[in-house]
């Protein structure tokens, strides 16, 4: 058990290191010198040097004790992300943004989860039923519409034309006023894919031999679905759930952009267009850590749920 956990943690740490290396290479090497952009067109060499010094880009890239990469790692490991381009503390900025984003993404995740599992279960159980077939087609239709269209059309009709919701975020509005529409749109856009995903999982279980044997023993449909099938389907369900949790704090870039919600998604988009690599690095680093933590949690869930999984031997 201890050996397994240590192995997992070592792997996770090297993966986090890899994430930092990739983002570093992307931004600092391929991305090129950004001090020109920061300084503007007609800045003198002096200004440029000052900016480079502040950004730390005057130092060697790799392979030195005081190189940019080493500092990059050092700062991340101490959660000291520095200042963003608009001179705010990045750590604080991320905390504030994440709070707002989570208020948006957690309801979307839970709503999608509950709706998709319920609908998926029904559609898998009554596969040939007319309603299930209509539901299946609706899902394919929903899967075929871009998220952008969901957002724009939803905002245009539900908020702008029919005035059921506020069109835009406004600091005076309470979250209960500005959040429902983006949440509804988020759930609607993801439902098609998710329902079919869970339906396929449940269908595979329902068609398996152990369900037939349970029926041959006289077990009724409710017990088969909610006890036998659900427990077996737990592995892929948990996998999907646990691996979507780490990205929740990032919010939804598109939803936040359109509804003007000042969450982390908006911050990331702003940072991308401002080439504020420090902010991006910090966000990527945090998500890598969360992914690592939740990977270990997923492994523990597997072991708790499935007697065939043995942590001592790995899977």
């Amino acid at each position: 058990m201890a050996a397994f956990v240590i192995k997992k943690i070592v792997f996770a740490i090297t993966a986090i290191f890899g994430v930092m290396l990739i983002t570093f290479l992307l931004f600092n090497c391929i991305g090129g010198d950004i001090s020109y952009e920061y300084a503007g067109r007609n800045a003198g060499n002096e200004t440029l040097d000052k900016i480079r010094k502040e950004l730390g880009t005057d130092k060697p890239l790799l392979f030195f004790a005081d190189s940019q990469f080493v500092n990059h790692i050092k700062n991340a490991a101490t959660f000291n992300f520095g200042l963003s381009r608009d001179r705010e503390d990045i750590g604080r900025k991320i905390r504030q943004g994440a709070k707002i984003s989570l208020a948006l993404t957690i309801p979307i995740l839970l709503g999608t989860f509950v709706i998709s599992i319920a609908a998926g279960l029904i559609m898998a159980y009554r596969e040939k039923n007319l309603l299930s077939r209509i539901g299946n087609w609706l899902c394919i239709v929903g899967m075929s519409i871009p998220f952008l269209s969901f957002i724009l059309l939803g905002q245009y009709y539900l908020a702008y034309k029919w005035k059921l919701f506020p069109v835009y975020f406004w600091p005076d509005l309470s979250p209960f006023q500005y959040l429902p529409l983006p949440i509804i749109i988020g759930i609607a856009a993801g439902a098609g894919f998710n329902i079919r995903f869970y339906k396929t999982i449940f269908r595979n279980e329902i068609e398996s031999e152990y369900v037939r044997f349970a029926m041959a023993r006289g077990v009724g449909p409710a017990r088969i679905l909610f006890k036998h099938v659900l427990k077996n389907a737990m592995m892929p369900i948990i996998t999907r759930l646990v691996f979507s949790i780490p990205f929740l704090f990032m919010g939804s870039v598109l939803l936040e952009k359109f509804f003007g919600i000042p969450g982390l998604g908006s911050i990331v988009i702003d940072a991308l267009s401002a080439r504020d690599y420090k902010v991006l690095n910090a966000v990527v680093f945090l998500s890598a850590i969360l992914v690592a933590v939740f990977t270990v949690i997923a492994d523990i869930c597997y072991a708790a749920l499935d007697p065939r999984v043995n942590l001592e031997q790995g899977n």
Partner: peptide
Amino acid sequence: LWLNSVFASIPYILLVTAFALVLKDK
């Protein structure tokens, strides 16, 4: 496997926009 989990640790939208941003006009 390691490369897999490295890429899976980065939010997709950030990864792809970062790649696109960096590759633009190169």
